[in-house]
Design a protein around this nucleic acid. Structure first.
Lengths: 155, 155
DNA sequence: TATTGTTATACTCTATAACTATA
DNA sequence: TATAGTTATAGAGTATAACAATA
């Protein structure tokens, strides 16, 4: 009788215990995969998923103040300072004086920021398409819907 | 005619542009929410989702070597060194001499590690239940299945 | 030559606490 | 008193490059 052939390489013969059934674990893996694909696609432009989100939010909310941005991104106020510092250094965002409140900054994209974001959006669309390559439109919508359902707002 | 009442607080009147339609963005939000819930549940035990995964994998693969663990966790070999350093310092894991290869370490949970992991698994089950509180069994299974589909192995 | 684990080092992302200037 | 932004600082988590021991 022929011996069973070992199909998998030794290093991949690994048991993952309970992990594969955990939402948190699968989410983690998906996140890693997405981050790496994002990096491959957009790495040359030196933008992470987080920075992309910040640019989109600033564009969609002209004269946004930093504290509001912090809430929207789930970041601390102090973290936003350094994020905006770096985007301002790259001349993608500017801090203007807010009209009503002299404590606040009013954030805006510079023309360069707007131009870059336009390019980024095209790249992100390709990235999304690649990610969702195995999903049909309905599955894609379902995935987004189910992900929303686990957020605390919906609990 | 009565004026329309503004339901949301000023700070939440924020536009998110294209973000809510992006799988990557929803995944990011879900990840943040999960990490925070995990921390709340398991913070006292000083274990992150990543460390939990490492413990599970070591338990499920006795005498695992570090390089294999690195592949399984998507971490660099050098990163695994410090992860195991810290788990060893906490007496949860031990590095034994491997039998066939004097370069390798054979990783094992200590009795304390096994005991802690048992406790962790119970907590993680509660955590998962809370996360999936809004999902029925079928939705939960669908979510896991769709998440798997976006991993590179399935592309 | 290649692999295993290690070290030294550094970078990114993030938060906390204390400060200042306004409100 | 409370809020907006800032600074100084620190911690977690990660990677790269070079190395010694072993295969």
């Amino acid at each position: 009788m022929a011996k069973k052939i070992e199909v998998r390489a030794p290093d991949t013969e690994i048991a993952f215990g309970v992990l594969p059934e955990l939402i948190g674990y699968q989410l983690r893996l998906a996140q890693i995969a997405i981050f790496r694909d994002f990096e491959t696609t957009l790495g040359a432009l030196d933008i992470t998923p987080g920075l992309f989100g910040v640019l989109v939010i600033i564009e969609a909310n002209p004269d946004l103040k930093q504290t509001t941005l912090a809430k929207a991104t789930h970041l601390d106020r102090s973290t936003v300072v350094s994020v905006i510092d770096s985007l301002e250094k790259r001349a993608l965002v500017e801090r203007r004086a807010a009209e009503n409140d002299r404590r606040s900054n009013a954030l805006r994209l510079t023309p360069a920021g707007t131009a870059l974001l336009k390019k980024l959006k095209r790249q992100v669309a390709l990235h999304e398409k690649r990610l969702a390559g195995n999903l049909n439109d309905q599955e894609r919508a379902t995935l987004v819907r189910l992900l929303r359902k686990i957020l605390p707002e919906h609990r």
